[in-house]
């Protein structure tokens, strides 16, 4: 074996090794500079819940407790309230609404059963995943934290990469041209 063939072999190996690296250099970058740069997530990502409102800003939730019943980790707590006022003065869309709507994110496993159970399309998973807190008690989110009107104002509110905003009907999102590349 000559030194020359060693040099040749090793050079070839280096070039072969670098080929992958070099070919990737001109390509689009996939790395996101999180948290310096905010991220977007897949449309079907299951983040912090959103409580939706109808076109007049009335809460869609009628406090039927089905999400709480479906929840495997029993993290949803609701207290219903009668609201016999006319529609214009009501809090919710129907004559019954959730006075208290709490989700304990210390227990939530983001399984999405609550979303499936909801007969009124009032609760969906949003895209916020930044729910870590310093105090365990703060993991309990109340209706104020969950309502879409409130969340929209929060800096944590984020959307999927999609032409549609989430608070229009969630279901339409995946049918309307979603880009699967970031």
């Amino acid at each position: 074996m000559s030194i020359l063939s060693d040099v040749f072999k090793s050079t070839k190996a280096v070039i072969l090794g670098m080929k992958r690296t070099l070919s990737e250099i001109p390509r689009e970058k996939w790395t996101v500079q999180y948290p310096d740069v905010p991220v977007t997530v897949q449309p079907r990502y299951r983040g912090q819940h959103l409580l939706h409102v109808d076109e007049n800003g009335k809460e869609k939730c009628v406090a039927c407790y089905l999400c709480a019943a479906a929840c495997p980790s029993e993290c949803i707590y609701i207290e219903a309230q009668d609201d016999p006022r006319p529609y214009e003065e009501r809090v919710g869309r129907d004559e019954r609404y959730a006075k208290v709507y709490n989700i304990d994110y210390g227990r939530c496993i983001f399984c999405g059963f609550c979303v499936e159970a909801c007969p009124k399309d009032a609760i969906t998973h949003g895209y916020n995943f930044e729910i870590s807190v310093y105090n365990r008690a703060d993991l309990l989110k109340t209706k104020d934290d969950l309502l879409i009107t409130k969340q929209k104002q929060s800096k944590n509110y984020r959307v999927a990469l999609s032409t549609e905003d989430v608070d229009s009907e969630y279901k339409e999102v995946d049918s309307v041209g979603i880009k699967f590349r970031l």
């Binding site: 406090a63 039927c64 407790y65 709480a68 019943a69 219903a80 309230q81 009668d82 004559e95």
Partner: peptide, 9 residues
């Protein structure tokens, strides 16, 4: 009891 809670609760 109107609209107070649900029976299974």
């Amino acid at each position: 009891y109107r609209h107070e809670t649900r029976p299974w609760e």
